[in-house]
């Protein structure tokens, strides 16, 4: 019984962690690497620093939608 409760807690914590990483964009880099590996097999993936620089440059070119 306690094992089931503990497992449920672990799942809940993992769920929150997953959500926070997804919504903040922390997880974007890993996804980009997987995509890169699929589309350009063999080519080295960009480093995290390169990826983030590229992403900010992309953000520069569009507005950030924020409402009242």
């Amino acid at each position: 019984m306690t094992g089931r409760v503990a497992a449920r807690w672990r799942r809940a914590v993992a769920g929150v962690r997953w959500y926070v990483r997804e919504i903040s964009g922390d997880a974007d880099y890993e996804r980009h690497c997987r995509r890169h590996a699929r589309e350009h097999p063999g080519a080295p993936a960009p480093t995290r620093r390169e990826y983030e620089l590229w992403r900010t440059r992309r953000r520069e070119e569009g507005p950030l939608a924020r409402c009242c």
């Binding site: 799942r11 993992a14 769920g15 997953w18 997804e22 997880a27 890993e30 996804r31 997987r34 995509r35 699929r38």
Partner: peptide, 12 residues
């Protein structure tokens, strides 16, 4: 498959 944002290891 698995490339949906958030699909990697979604617990729920």
């Amino acid at each position: 498959a698995g490339e949906l944002v958030g699909a990697g290891g979604t617990p729920g």
